[in-house]
């Protein structure tokens, strides 16, 4: 991490390109934008479609994914759809979304959902398919009913892979929201990036980009903590 910052500093000072500021300038720009409130307020605006979109994608994705893993008819109907969604360049659909849903919040939420949903649903599906058959047989042989089998065996056993899907989904959601803000209407983070680029404040632009990447990474890291706390107590001592 430190090495990366140093390398950036050196590369910025050479300079490779006028549009590539040294690290220290970026940090200074970050400080200025926090102080004048433009960065925090942009984040708040961006977070709104992001959070709504991720909640929607998570709920639908996990329910659909687990459903497809458990039931053959859902698998038959759903999996091909999500596979196509995941393989297609969904970002290309964003202009289409604008056409149908306008440029408001709905369109941005939708952009987040279409990018995050396929990976969450497909991971959920694969996770359930990979649940140990012997654990399921164990649950049945000790007279567990269908509900107990799902909640006490299938979901905990599938949770690492479901959460891996969530982490990928969240990253995809960040991409979705920033793309939407760049392509649909410049608001929030997207607006800040576009604006500072247009007036050639490259230090500011990089500060915004770096912040959103960092924010995304921290969110994903936090999710891992949540997973271990909720489902995998046996991993606690290793991560501590």
């Amino acid at each position: 991490m430190v090495l990366f910052c140093l390398a950036w500093e050196v590369a910025g000072r050479i300079p490779i390109n006028v549009a590539f500021p040294p690290f220290s300038d970026v940090v200074a720009a970050f400080g200025r934008m926090v102080a004048d409130g433009s960065l925090p307020s942009a984040f708040l605006i961006t977070l709104q479609p992001l959070v709504i979109g991720l909640v929607v994608a998570t709920v639908i994705g996990i329910v659909m994914g687990v459903g497809m893993g458990l039931r053959d008819e859902l698998e038959w109907a759903g999996v091909p759809v999500f596979v196509v969604m995941q393989a297609a360049p969904m970002a290309a659909l964003i202009p289409l979304i604008t056409y149908v849903y306008g440029i408001g919040l709905t369109a941005k939420v939708l952009a987040v959902v279409i990018l995050a949903l396929p990976v969450i649903a497909l991971n959920g599906y694969k996770a359930v398919r990979n649940v140990s058959p012997s654990l399921r047989a164990m649950c049945r042989s000790f007279l567990g009913n269908r509900r107990q089998e799902i909640f006490k065996i299938v979901l905990p056993d599938a949770s690492p892979m479901i959460f891996a899907g969530l982490r990928l989904g969240i990253s995809a959601g960040f991409v979705g929201v920033v793309l939407a803000e760049l392509l649909i209407t410049p608001t929030g983070i997207g607006d800040l990036i576009t604006y500072h680029r247009s007036i050639a404040d490259y230090a500011e632009m990089y500060a915004v980009i770096a912040t959103i990447i960092l924010f995304s990474a921290v969110t994903v890291g936090l999710l891992e903590r949540v997973e271990i706390a909720l489902f995998r107590p046996e991993k606690k001592e290793h991560s501590a």
Partner: peptide, 27 residues
């Protein structure tokens, strides 16, 4: 009837105590 599995079939996320009590938990 109670089954003892060749591959143990223990829940990796549960302690020895919870695993041993699992049949009763299901009841």
């Amino acid at each position: 009837r109670a089954f003892v599995f060749q591959d143990f079939a223990l829940m990796p996320w549960a302690s020895v105590l919870r695993n041993a009590a699992f049949g009763l938990e299901l009841q």
